[in-house]
Design a protein around this nucleic acid. Structure first.
Length: 806
RNA sequence: GCCGGGGUGGCGAAACUGGUAGACGCACAGGACUUAAAAUCCUGUUCUCCGCAAGGAGAGUGCCGGUUCGAUUCCGGUCCCCGGCACCA
């Protein structure tokens, strides 16, 4: 109630009731309900593969259904993709536009810890709320494809994909993942002789030949293979929060620490995914993506490719050498270059180590370490070379002398993939009595999350699942021997890593997606979502996608061809919306007061999609007034019937020009996602036509079609009043005639020494000599030429005449 | 500190490859309609100065400078704001 709108509502309810009685605004609430039901009943937006038509897959990042319900930030991306989809349908595309729920995660689990209410119940309730609110906006989703990451029929396949990752290794020789069974076959035939073991294994004494492999015990073989798998166990420091009794993801630490919780590091065995094997391809393939440059850059920085050298340093008084990477720690030893690195400089100062500059800083450089470019100094044969050239020459030298080589390093680390949580996907793994890990066979999936009343992890930091004995203790389905289940669960990213594939074939219980469906729909033509997922979600999803591609399940290298980040919607005060600031706007209130069409229209009219911009209830009223004018342009207020002034009459040339200009502007602006200016053009159109005594029926019909992607409910209603019996959703999009958008007179600007002195209207493409004559005879121009000499005349066709005088 | 994005009226914003800065909307002011108000419709609204007025002059797209007949747009410098990164996945 802290908002401007809230106060208005409280202060003068009279104002609003009187509006309702006297103004008679268009009856949006009945109209909107009617058309939502119509679309549902007719399954208007249901799509199936149709090879005869061009496909279009448009996706918006699916929400985490929180208890707070939708906020006005959600509909921004949803409306944008909806407009685009509705437009493309009318242009004949076969459009896939789905929605679902990313419903595993900590909030529901924390709520359960406090209240004892099972996360599945809260999740179901929250989804119901979200779905009601999203449906209320008239978004054209194919609801038959709705998915929910917490549904066993969904997470069965998340587990299945994990098994595929677990059962794969990265073959650097061919730069792709291969099934682990192929590695076993290779070991049986050649041992590890054809593989560069150093890429997989720290221990260079373990190399074996074929017979060595076959003579290994089962446990030994298991341990060798574990070094190769794309999913592996490692002892890792994790963020343990004793008060919450849970482990936190890195990205969550800051939030809880700021709330006063203590987070400590603890070493625990964790599942890791070998995303680093894909570092090079994740970096390389960015170049083919139509993504915002900023996001591409962020991914680049995250992957952090750097070229350097790996060199062996001799140790004084020892025959041993230390291997060091020049660009970052790796090997346990680092190379320190205090002259060119701030951290090394500080380190050297503290320990009184000598500091030698090897790059000459600019003359007046005052700082300590110099990080910029410059000629090398005190560097023997490198002196005088600039940094890049010196690097090259140095690496050549190292390689020539056999004490080092060029190496490419990455900042990217392997992905910590396990969480000690209840509300996540269980791993489809068991531990046998000999300590080995075993992947459950596919037919055992899904491994269901057990029902539980306790969601707290144990004191030791083990997952809540560890406390459920009847679930943990199981048997190996293949041998009947006792086994223990893995009690960790997967992170929330898991479900969102592949949801875009499940939409293609959500009911399939044989495969995660049928191949022909994948081939038809992929890749995603447009992906819209918040920039907060610029790195992690998008990187993790690309990684899984590439693994599945390597294993032959997918036909595209990259999932998201074009990406757009919608901007944040701020509160009316220009601050981030938050409960504590009291500036949160609830879409329910907006829709109730002004209707879903106004809500949609305002979200798009505020400004460019990708910008952050503040909410304004006054602004909502503005677009609401526009929709009322649209209504009055065609409907008689007293009877609710189509106006009798709408007739089959021809257009005047001026009106025809405006119509074609409007079609053109709206068409091109939707194509480029500039919805705000498309709406502005429609406003111009209505401002003109509202007062016409007669309105050509065909023109009104065209306008309704243009409006329909933005405000679909009112458009359907007007379409019906115009005499149509079918929904306009699949009507062909209006075409414009370029020739009819052209004007026959233009306003000519006359500048003298760069200053605008007069303007007049002239026929288009006027003869230049005639134009000059006209300009020089103009009184107000003459005044500024008084006594001066014309040096130069610049004529820009149909725009301006610029006189330079002395 | 590094990387990316951005600074335009009272506010949200427009402006195609350099060519009328401020479309469209909000807010505000005046008017019409009305007994009155609301709603609706019309007119005006970047700032400063001159003029009774029609009108005129000057300044203006964060700031300083450059290129150009002409710069919100291109170039150099500088300040501020937002997002990311700072060895952490």
């Amino acid at each position: 109630m802290g908002t401007e709108a809230g106060r208005r509502c409280m202060v003068s309810p009279y104002e609003y009731s009187s509006i309702n009685l006297v103004l008679m605004p268009y009856p949006f609430s009945g109209i909107e309900k009617k058309w939502r039901e119509y679309w549902d009943k007719h399954e208007t937006f249901r799509v199936v593969e149709d090879p005869s038509r061009q496909k279009l897959y448009v996706l918006v990042m699916f929400p985490y259904p929180s208890g707070a319900g939708l906020h006005v930030g959600h509909p921004e991306g949803y409306t944008a993709t909806d407009i685009y989809c509705r437009f493309k349908r009318m242009r004949g595309y076969n459009v896939l536009h789905p929605m679902g729920w990313d419903a595993f995660g900590l909030p529901a689990e924390r709520y359960a810890m406090q209240t004892g209410i099972h996360p599945s119940i809260t999740t179901a309730e929250n989804i119901a709320t979200f779905k009601r609110q999203i449906k209320m906006l008239g978004l054209s989703y194919d609801w038959s494809r709705e998915i929910n990451t917490t549904d066993p029929t969904y997470y069965k396949w998340t587990q299945w994909i994990f098994l595929k990752i677990y059962d794969s290794w990265y073959d650097y020789r061919v730069q792709r993942a291969r099934p682990i069974s192929e590695l076993i076959r290779e070991f049986e035939q050649h041992g590890c002789s054809q593989i560069d073991c150093s890429l997989y294994c720290d221990d260079d004494h373990c190399c074996f030949i074929a017979s060595g492999w076959t003579q290994m015990s089962r446990v030994e073989q298991h341990n060798v293979l574990a070094q190769f798998r794309l999913a592996y166990l490692a002892k890792m420091p994790v963020n343990w929060c004793p008060d919450l009794g849970t482990v936190l993801a890195n990205e969550e630490v800051e939030e809880w620490v700021s709330k006063g919780y203590i987070v400590e590091r603890r070493n625990m065995k964790q599942w890791m995914l070998r995303i680093t094997a894909y570092a090079e391809r994740l970096e390389q393939d960015l170049k083919d993506l139509d993504w915002p440059p900023g996001i591409v850059e962020m991914q680049r920085n995250w992957i952090g490719q750097s070229e350097g050298a790996e060199a062996d340093f001799a140790i004084k008084n020892s025959s041993k050498v230390i291997r060091v990477f020049t660009t970052r720690p790796g090997t346990g030893a680092i190379m320190a270059v205090p002259g060119q690195d701030e951290r090394d400089w500080e380190f050297a100062e503290v320990f009184n180590l000598p500091i030698v500059r090897t790059v000459r800083p600019p003359k007046h450089f005052k700082g300590k370490a110099y990080l910029g470019d410059g000629p090398a100094i005190d560097s023997d044969f490198l002196d005088g070379l600039h940094v890049e050239d010196a690097k090259k020459k140095m690496i050549e030298w190292l390689e020539k002398h056999g004490i080092g080589k060029r190496s490419i390093n990455y900042k990217l680390r392997d992905w910590l993939f396990s969480r000690q949580r209840y509300w996540g996907e269980p791993f489809p793994l068991i531990y046998l009595e000999d300590g080995t890990v075993k992947a459950l066979p596919e037919r055992e999936l899904p491994v269901l999350l057990p029902d539980s009343k306790s969601f707290k992890p144990s004191e030791t930091g083990e997952s809540p699942l560890a406390t459920i004995d009847r679930w943990v203790n199981t048997i190996d389905p293949e041998t009947g021997k006792p086994a223990r289940r893995e009690t960790h669960t997967m992170p929330q990213w898991a479900g969102s890593c592949w949801y875009y594939l499940r939409y293609l074939d959500p009911q399939n219980n044989k495969e995660f997606v049928a191949r022909d469906k994948e081939r038809y729909w992929m890749p995603i033509d447009l992906y819209v979502g918040g920039a907060e997922h610029a790195v992690l979600h998008l990187l993790y999803a690309r990684f899984w996608h590439k693994v599945l591609y390597d294993l032959g399940y997918l036909t595209t290298k990259e999932p998201f061809r074009r990406l757009i980040n919608q901007g944040t919607i701020l509160g009316e005060d220009g601050q981030k919306m938050s409960k504590s600031r009291g500036n949160v706007v609830n879409p329910d209130d907006v829709v109730k007061e002004y209707g879903a069409d106004s809500m949609r229209l305002f979200e798009m009219f505020m400004g460019p999609l990708t910008d952050s911009k503040p909410w304004s209830m006054r602004g909502v009223e503005g677009v609401y007034r526009f929709l009322n004018r649209v209504w009055r342009m065609m409907v008689a207020e007293d009877t609710g019937q189509l106006l009798s002034s709408i007739k089959d009459v021809p257009l005047t040339p001026e009106d025809e020009r405006l119509l074609h200009q409007t079609i053109k502007k709206v068409t091109t602006d939707i194509e480029t996602l500039n919805f705000n200016t498309a709406i502005a053009q429609m406003m111009i159109f209505v401002n003109e036509f509202l007062s016409r005594e007669t309105k050509p029926r065909a023109t009104m019909e065209t306008f309704v079609l243009l409006l329909s992607p933005f405000a679909p409910h009112i458009a359907e209603e007007l379409w019906e009043k115009l005499g149509h019996t079918q929904s306009l959703v699949y009507e062909p999009w209006p075409l414009y005639d370029e020739g009819k958008t052209a004007v026959d007179t233009v306003e000519m600007v006359v500048q003298v020494n760069g200053k605008v002195r007069t303007k007049f209207s002239v026929p288009i493409n006027m003869d230049e000599e005639l134009l000059k004559k006209k300009v020089l005879n103009d009184d107000s121009v003459k005044r500024h030429l008084d006594g001066k000499q014309i040096v130069k005349i610049v004529i820009v066709k149909n725009k301006l005449v610029s006189l330079v005088v002395k």
